[in-house]
Computed example of a mutant assay.
Amino acid sequence: MAHIDYYFSTLSPFTYLAGTRLEEIAGRHGATITYKPIDIMALFPRTGGLPPGERHPSRNAYRAQDLPRQAKKAGMKLNLKPAHFPTNAAPSSYAVIAAQNAGGGHLGALVHGILHAVWAEDLDIAEDDVVKGCLERAGFDPGLADSGLLTGAETYAANLEEAVAAGVFGAPFYIVDGEQKFWGQDRLDDLDMHLSGTL
């Protein structure tokens, strides 16, 4: 059975555009997933990248064209300039970590719900009520937002170190069985084919 380490940011528009396709793919192939939220703004400078606000204008101009195209292809609503971006991604990331440890809900729906709040609803995922709402809608106890904060902080920091050591440089990033790496929501078809043995 294949295992996928899923590195992502709860702020990443490209992670948002992945929707819940990873979970659908993993389900078809019987693969397991470990969700590893990371501080993407801390990852960029450590792996040769820059946050959007510091990138060359040509890169940001391309991003401004490409994101709406990708959203249209996926049939998803996208606000290119959300009201709360960037914001503090730690509270939502801690909630994902706590939910994974607790079990009982749908992690893919939780992650997508958090990202949908940013990119489609103009909500601030640094606010407790927003995070609790996402937890509840995904079948988790909303009280998880208030628990395990130390564990969440430690895991969040450890995920970043693991990501750097594993060769992760962006989000979403998928690593199958510690070897095969796939970067971006536009590589999910490749991941699917890899798991099927055709790529």
Rank of each mutant, 00 (worst) to 15 (best):
R187Q: 14
G143A: 14
D189V: 13
K72P: 03
T34R: 10
R63G: 00
Y174D: 01
L107G: 09
Q185I: 09
A95C: 09
L144H: 06
R28K: 10
Y7N: 01
A18L: 03
L43M: 00
L135W: 03
Q70P: 03
A102E: 15
L80E: 11
M41G: 02
R46S: 05
E24T: 08
A138T: 00
T15H: 04
Q65S: 04
G49R: 00
W183Y: 14
K181Q: 11
I25Q: 07
H29F: 11
A120H: 10
L11V: 05
K81P: 04
G49A: 02
Y156F: 15
G152V: 04
I38G: 00
T155R: 05
A117I: 14
E23D: 12
D39F: 02
V111C: 14
R21K: 13
Y6V: 07
A74D: 06
E54V: 01
G105P: 06
G27P: 03
S93R: 01
V131C: 10
I40W: 01
E24R: 13
F182H: 10
A138Y: 01
D5K: 02
A171G: 05
A98I: 05
G184Y: 09
G19T: 01
Y7W: 05
I25R: 07
G48C: 01
E162T: 06
A163P: 06
V131K: 03
H116C: 12
L67I: 12
A117Y: 07
K132N: 12
E162V: 01
Y7Q: 00
E179G: 10
G108M: 12
R46P: 00
A89S: 15
S58M: 11
L160P: 02
I125C: 11
L107C: 08
K132H: 08
H116K: 13
A157V: 08
G133P: 09
M193P: 01
L43Y: 00
L188M: 15
P142W: 04
N60W: 07
R55W: 04
Q185Y: 08
A42Q: 02
A95D: 01
K72N: 10
L115F: 13
H84P: 06
E121H: 11
V131T: 05
P172L: 06
H84I: 07
A71K: 11
G184M: 08
Y6N: 04
Y16N: 00
D190Y: 14
W119S: 06
E162R: 05
L195Y: 12
K77T: 13
N101Y: 06
E24M: 13
R69C: 03
G197W: 15
L199Y: 12
F169E: 03
D39E: 03
A158W: 07
L17Q: 02
A126P: 05
S93C: 07
E127K: 15
S12C: 09
D66A: 08
L149D: 05
E127N: 11
N79V: 15
G133A: 10
E162L: 11
G108F: 14
R55H: 03
Y174N: 06
I114A: 07
I38N: 01
P82Q: 10
A120N: 07
A64Y: 08
E54P: 00
V130I: 15
H116Q: 14
A171C: 13
